[in-house]
Simulated scan of single mutants.
Amino acid sequence: MKAIICQQFGPPDQLLLTDLPSPKAGKGQVVIRVEACGVNFPDTLIIEGKYQFKPPFPFSPGGEVSGTITEVGEGVSRLKVGDAVFSMTGHGGFAEEVVADAATTLPMPPTMDFVTAASTMYTYGTSYHALKDRANLQPGETMLVMGAAGGVGLAAVQLGVLMGARVIAAASSEEKLAVCRLMGATETINYTTENLRDRIKVLTAGAGVDVVYDPVGDRYAEPAIRSLAWRGRYLVVGFAAGDIPSIPLNLALLKGASIVGVFWGAFAQREPAMSLQNFNQILSWIGSGQLQQHIYKLYTLAEAPDALRDLMERRVVGKAVIKL
């Protein structure tokens, strides 16, 4: 099978397209013939050795796939050969075939296409867990979404609107903010040309925001926390801007605020029943057309390094997908 492999930690241009033996399913596993693979920020970290999980070399990046099962391992009864599925694999998805745990593999609804299926788990799974389980977002509350034009950011914008919140989207260009408005954001902030705190004060009449959804971190985190309302919740989703910020904890004290971690992958493994319940709701919204992924571009397998580079350089609006 063809696969993109990482032989040493480094930038995307060091990745290699090569031939590898087809994988075999072990106990509790399935083999999936990959039709599409989502491109996510953790993929850029894993190839540079910056992610919390470091697979042994050589490995393929790509943690979110859709495709057709070609083999089932011992103990797998819920899934069968020929099933169209989507799966959270962690890595290995930039390949024609991948091994996946049956526990993190779900049947695709009949009306869902492979590209949509491969761009659902990380973005909507992360964002819905964050807003529902970690922030307890309520109708009528105001939420600020940082990095709102990225994959998880746009998912948070859409879900926040569906959950009845007033959504303020913050991103780095007018082009990106235009997409956020199309997805339902009530107001927008360009944080490369506007002062984040000042603009939030104006938009909230000084009251601040109830929830901050932040996959960006770096220098934007502290002004976002300073912009929380009383009993506000700041969601730590990721650090796409680079540095992990150091936060003065007196800010949480003074605002009666919560700084809440969001690690969807661990949640899905530790609390599978609740994770499945969340996904049933997400799939219902997708099926009814209330959620619709914004696909930036489809890439071939050979173009996977380009997809990672586009993501790292902030060109991707919404979701990039490898289509095999």
Rank of each mutant, 00 (worst) to 15 (best):
A102R: 05
T111K: 14
A266Y: 10
C37R: 02
T116E: 13
V152H: 03
L79S: 02
R197K: 15
P12V: 07
L162F: 08
G318D: 09
G90L: 11
K50H: 11
G206P: 04
G75P: 03
I282G: 03
G318N: 14
R134I: 09
K27L: 13
M112C: 09
A252R: 00
V39W: 05
A171M: 00
L308S: 08
R166I: 08
V98S: 08
G93W: 02
L159G: 08
T116N: 12
L235R: 06
N136H: 14
G261W: 12
L182S: 15
R231G: 15
G151K: 04
D243P: 08
R33E: 08
Q7N: 06
A95Q: 04
Q277W: 10
F53K: 13
D101W: 10
G10Q: 02
A3Q: 06
S173T: 03
D133H: 13
G265L: 08
A155H: 00
A224V: 03
M312Q: 07
P109R: 12
T120I: 01
P42L: 05
V157S: 04
M121K: 14
P272R: 03
I282L: 09
L298K: 13
G28N: 04
V81A: 12
L131T: 07
T104C: 15
V167S: 00
G184F: 07
T300D: 04
R233S: 04
E194N: 09
V98F: 06
M163P: 05
K50D: 07
P55V: 04
R197E: 06
L324M: 14
Q290T: 04
I46L: 00
A118Y: 00
W230D: 14
L131R: 13
G73R: 07
K132Q: 11
E71P: 00
I286M: 12
I286P: 05
A273K: 15
D306A: 15
L254T: 15
E74F: 07
L276R: 14
V65H: 00
A221W: 01
G73V: 07
E174K: 13
E187N: 08
T123I: 11
G217Q: 11
G147N: 05
F114R: 07
A207V: 15
L17W: 05
Q290W: 04
A320H: 11
I32Y: 09
A100R: 00
S87R: 10
V157Q: 05
V202F: 01
G62R: 03
Q293N: 05
L249S: 13
L235H: 11
I259M: 13
S172G: 06
R314W: 00
T116R: 14
A224D: 05
V237K: 07
Q7V: 09
W285I: 04
R166A: 06
T68V: 10
P58C: 09
L291F: 15
W264G: 01
A302D: 11
T186M: 14
K54Q: 09
V321H: 09
R197C: 06
F41L: 00
